[in-house]
Amino acid sequence: MSPLATLGVTAALHIAALGVTATAQQPVATQLAGRVPATVVVAVSALADSAATRGLPVEPLVEKAIEGGAKAATPERIVAAVQAVLARLGRAQGALQAAGVATPAPDAIEAGGFALSAGLEVGNVQAVALACGTRYSAAVALRVAGTLSALGVPPAQTVELVKQTLRSGAKERDLLALPGRVEAQVAQGATPGQAAAGLARAAAARAAAPGQNRVPPRGQSSSHRP
């Protein structure tokens, strides 16, 4: 390729990249326009700027504001709800960093925030993230943990079930199936805690039997990878 052509391609790439960035990071004010009162747009835009500066995802804030608008909540209530989301995201980020993730991914932070909103504590989020190591997606594990908590599984049993399931080498789809399995046992008369404890014991037994359903570290190819 000639130097002139290379220069042209480079310029085109830069222009395209600028366009993509502008599209993907649509201003918060534009996304909220017409959905919430103007005062909320201003307040949420400021909160979003603060979140972005701290490396937190902005989308959950916008979503919460839109939800408040759809539910006809008062401006004060919408802003308070968005502030609460921002606070949870910050706590989730701290928990992930304490678990050894220097720069947590936005989806992991968001999942951690959800887990906190569902009743888990910062220490629980940290424990789940630690159990994921490099083999599992912290985002998926935290979403599942949050869903289990929302089902009524106490935090300690939630963490234990997720940890034992990860330790047993289960696939991500098995992890995602946990809430449904808990609910099935609850339908048969168990409490959420009992159901989770039973599933955790079963997972621990599988973990004790090596070589079954092992998931390789992320980045390695395997036909068993979820």
Binding site: K64, E67, A73, R77, V85, S117, A118, V144, G146
Partner: peptide, 15 residues
């Protein structure tokens, strides 16, 4: 299952 929606109601949750 549900979680608090921050507006005095609860949202259903699905993964």
């Amino acid at each position: 299952p549900t979680v608090d929606d921050g507006f005095g109601r609860r949202n259903s949750v699905m993964a």
